[in-house]
Design a protein around this nucleic acid. Structure first.
Length: 429
RNA sequence: GCGGAUGUAGCUCAAUGGUGGAGCGCCGCACUGUGGAUGCGGUGGUUGCGGGUUCGAGCCCCGUCGUCCGCCCCA
């Protein structure tokens, strides 16, 4: 290990096993996104810093982004999130796009923060957005997509839940409590942190915001009120749609969910694991009706969320929902090399078989058959072929089913059929 | 960026301040036309790195880097 150049801090190596999980996860995102009619898109991985300075949080840009000068001394940012790129892409072609837009994306992002469990500096994120529709039913669709993803990955409502609230509703309630327009955004931060602080510290924090003890008590009562949503037509319609979409089991109202980002304007939602070991949000999003106008487009409402790959993978691992045997060879058939004289004949046999559409791995050089069979076993092959002098003289080949140890000697032109049978799990020899 | 732990073979971990080990893995042999099992043998390390204390440091001290757990932030 001494002379190996270390990897960049916070990055991950994807060995075949991890890579197959990554591909599988991407596939699930695709499957679920497309099942609701969403189209895949992608933005650049590199952006100017200005794109984020316009909209994203101060901390995200200044503290948590990878920023460096290129050879022309322009400041380049490795994208920390996708929404600004999406907003630009929409604004640039606003006139020629068909709304509502249903778009999804899956790609790498970078944030310069302290790596720890569930957080790395380079991660993959599934983004999905519905743009151009302001109805609560649009938010319900996004939440239904999220629920469908959990369902598709084998996570039942007992293990994962989507918590929902509405900022307009909360803003109105805070107004009723007598909080000034200046106090309300801070109150959102206060609410957001309730679970992270001790009750005493949280109370101190609240009183620091000049909440009176009376207001504080009312706020606490507000956050305990699981029926608060009934006071909002938007929420009522939202939950009706959730019901119709068949995902009520996964969704629950929680007055404490407000989300950290400032740009959310309406319904907000967050995927949470109910497992005690995973405390971070699995996914988070909400309605942002002012964002497009903020980057220079015509006003257009939007709603969407992002899901990072790290936490969801931890949860799927913990709940045993990751697919098994992901690290086996894509070629379930190994052609052995009997000896030097039969090397090229074996290569020809493998090439012939590939032409029939089979995935065939060839042992590269002659070796003891025992060693080659062992290798076949290790790479997860299900059939091994032997082309020895006897077989070669008759244009035959020995085909061994590595699952049940059956072995057959067949003419080479019948090999594809037999191999296909073995791979299909039919035991015939 | 702040606080706390930790770092020994490919992996999981042992070793009172006194010559660094085990299990698993890997390779080989038993088995010169056949895998998983078993047995035997072998490969395996500048104890993360750099200083310091000491007759002597894997062990104690300082620094540094990585990892992990919190905080901040958030996917």
């Amino acid at each position: 290990m001494k002379n190996i150049i270390p990897s960049v801090k916070g990055t991950r190596d994807f060995y075949p096993r991890e890579m197959s999980i990554r591909t599988w996860l991407y596939g699930k995102a695709r499957q679920v996104s497309e099942s609701y009619g969403y189209q895949e898109y992608e933005g650049p991985l590199l952006e100017t810093i200005e794109l984020y300075a316009a909209k994203s949080g101060e901390e995200l840009v200044k503290e948590q982004s990878f920023v460096f000068p290129d050879r022309s001394d322009n400041l380049i940012t490795l994208r920390p999130e996708l929404t600004p790129s999406l907003m630009r892409m929409v604004a640039q072609r606003q006139g020629q796009l068909h709304f509502p837009l249903r778009w999804w994306s899956y790609g790498p992002f970078w944030r310069y923060e302290r790596p720890q469990k569930g957080r790395s500096r380079e991660f993959f994120q599934w983004n999905i957005d519905l743009i151009g529709e302001a109805s609560p039913e649009a938010d319900a669709e996004m939440v239904a997509v999220m629920a469908s993803f959990y369902k598709a990955t084998g996570l039942p409502p007992e293990e994962v839940r989507i918590l929902v609230n509405n900022r307009r509703l909360m803003d109105g309630e805070l107004n009723t409590l007598g909080l000034t327009p200046e106090q309300r955004p801070q109150a959102f931060r206060l609410i957001d942190r309730r679970d992270k602080l001790s009750p005493e510290k949280w109370r101190d924090y609240a009183l620091d915001l000049d909440l009176s003890p009376g207001q504080f008590d009312q706020l606490v009562a507000l956050l305990e009120n699981r029926e608060l949503w009934k006071q909002s037509d938007e929420m009522v319609n939202f939950f009706r749609a959730i019901d119709a979409l068949g995902v009520s089991d996964y969704v629950q109202y929680d007055p404490q969910i407000v989300r950290g980002l400032d740009y959310y304007t309406g319904t907000v939602y967050e995927g949470r694991a109910l497992t005690p070991n995973i405390k971070r949000a699995l996914a988070g999003g909400g309605r942002y009706d002012n964002l497009l106008a903020d980057v220079g487009g015509a006003p257009l409402p939007g709603t969407g969320y992002a899901m990072g790959d790290v936490v969801i993978t931890l949860l799927l691992e913990e709940t045993g929902n990751l697919p098994q045997e992901l690290d086996i060879s894509p070629a379930p058939v190994l052609v052995t090399i009997f000896d030097e004289n039969l090397l090229l004949a074996s290569y020809r046999l493998a090439a012939d078989l590939r032409r029939t559409g089979l995935n065939i791995a060839c042992y590269p050089v002659p070796a003891k058959l025992g060693k080659q069979f062992k290798y076949a076993d290790r790479i997860g092959a299900r059939a091994a072929l032997v082309l020895g002098p006897d077989e070669n003289a008759q244009d035959q080949v020995t085909i061994k089913n590595l699952i049940n140890r059956d072995q057959a000697l067949v003419p080479q032109n019948e090999a594809p059929q037999l191999i296909s049978k073995i791979l299909a799990g039919e035991e015939s020899s």
